[in-house]
Amino acid sequence: MSSRLELIGPQGLRTDGRRFNELRNMNCKPSVLSQADGSAYIEQGNTKCLAAVYGPREARTKAQVLHNRANINVEISLAPFSMEERKKRSKSDKRILEIASAVKQTFEPIIMTELYARSQIDIYLQILQFDGGTVQICINAATLAIIDAGIPMKDYVCACSAGCIDDEPVLDLNHLEESNTPELTVALLPKNDKITLLQMESRLHIDKFQQVMEMAAKGCKEIHTVLDKAVRENIKDLLKKSSI
């Protein structure tokens, strides 16, 4: 596959100076909001996301009550200033709703909802700056916020994207790359390599699929170590403060 744009330079570096198998610079911090039960802020390159988790709490409407488990509700919003052109997006934008339902389906089997019958867990995600990889950053931010809220889940859920530029598998696509190449988003449980989400919206040659998939899985593990470090630091910090 050859793209019109020169996505890989002569030195084999990508447009933002990364190599094929490099993640974007990642920055994350749990417990950023005081009102929410759990919250997190994540930056992956130029994509920035804020997550707030409320619950498990009383269901807001009777229709949402499930009698054997908790109901998970995911809402995503894109800030008007998040993209190149300033535009207000409604919450019922089809694209956003689709991502929200993907996030919800990712977490439903992982969060131990059966412990909280008749309750509701609300996950609010806000993209503050957009540069590709919305699904992955939403999942990573939600994971961190859910852990911060003390809601039991079987494992971390880490998501990462990978694609293929000029027959070469590349990791963690930015916006420029993802609009010109096929993109595969994987969410997996890093401890036992179980996949909870696999999303691809364009065509990719079957011979390349295995390589791209493996690269994405490796990216997920790297993200796991970053998230885990942030969670541990946060807990140790809180422990130190509360022991006075």
Binding site: P152, Y156, L189, R232
Partner: peptide, 8 residues
């Protein structure tokens, strides 16, 4: 005083 995270 052991700190654990989900899945550990």
């Amino acid at each position: 005083t052991k700190v654990v995270t989900p899945g550990e």
